[in-house]
Simulated scan of single mutants.
Amino acid sequence: MSLIHPTAVVDPAAELDSSVSVGPYAVIGPKVRIAANTTVGAHCVIEGHTTIGCDNQIFQFASLGAQPQDKKYAGEPTRLVIGDRNTVREFCTFNTGTVQDRGETRIGNDNWIMAYVHIAHDCMVGNNTILANNATLAGHVHVDDWAILGGLTGVHQFTHIGAHVMAGFASHISQDVPPFMMVDGNPLAVRGFNVEGLRRRGFTPERLAAVKQMHKLLYRQSLTLEAAKQAIEGLKAEMPEAVQDVDHMLGFLAASTRGIAR
């Protein structure tokens, strides 16, 4: 308890590991659970049914676990779940889920979330993502592992952003963005594939060649989406080292409900 500043207001029912640090004037509600070595900065408000894992650093003035900004919300006990080793910078706002979805907003592990980011109800954010300043996720958005969203990027509700996507500054994302792609603009345009990011993550030349070919089939050969999917399926025989990447792309395309950015 010596790590909790005397001006912080921590409800006696909250469950905080003894190693959790809480800064001045922070407010932590009764249904909050925080695991080991997490730091909560000054003036943070953490409320609702919120579970936070280990080794997170939450900077001052963040608001986590508030009710969803959804007029249908009627006080149901929905949740916010945050994993381990995340950095959450100043003035971020993460809301709990709604019963119209799975009732949970979830942020994974090792994410770098910069100031003023908003993550709305029922969003699912994976691992190792970067959300730059003022990136805004509307309700029910899914952001897969290793995605990067530039500052001031806005994401429409129910949109799915694939793994390893990179979205440039002030992008307006209203359709699903397939894995590995680089996008920006308003209206959104696909500019290429995230070759440098994939290299940094250890993609072999063979896997990079397969991603390049998938980008070409989707965006450079004037194929219909169905024709592109069939051609991408054929890459598994041509490029056996990239079967997992091809399957990942095909699974994403099959599951898309808003249509893909093209």
Results as ranks from 00 to 15, higher is better:
E90Q: 04
E90N: 06
E90V: 05
F91W: 02
F91K: 00
F94G: 05
F94V: 12
N95W: 11
T96L: 04
T96V: 13
V99H: 06
V99M: 14
Q100P: 02
G103S: 11
R106F: 10
R106S: 13
N111K: 07
N111H: 07
I113A: 12
M114V: 09
A115G: 03
A115H: 05
Y116C: 10
V117H: 01
C123P: 10
V125A: 13
V125C: 08
G126V: 06
I130V: 15
N133H: 00
N133A: 00
A135H: 11
A135F: 08
L137W: 00
A138Q: 03
G139H: 04
G139K: 01
H140W: 11
H140Y: 14
H142C: 08
V143E: 05
V143M: 10
I148A: 12
I148N: 10
L149M: 15
G150T: 06
L152H: 03
L152E: 03
H156W: 02
Q157V: 11
Q157S: 05
H160I: 01
H160E: 12
H160T: 08
G162E: 11
V165A: 05
M166D: 04
M166I: 14
A167N: 00
F169R: 05
I173S: 06
D176P: 02
V177W: 04
P178A: 14
M182V: 15
D184Y: 02
G185A: 06
A189K: 12
R191C: 06
G192D: 09
E196Y: 13
G197H: 08
R199L: 06
R200A: 04
G202Y: 09
F203Y: 05
P205V: 01
E206G: 04
L208P: 02
A209S: 13
A210Q: 03
V211S: 06
M214Q: 10
L217V: 06
Y219E: 10
Y219T: 09
S222T: 09
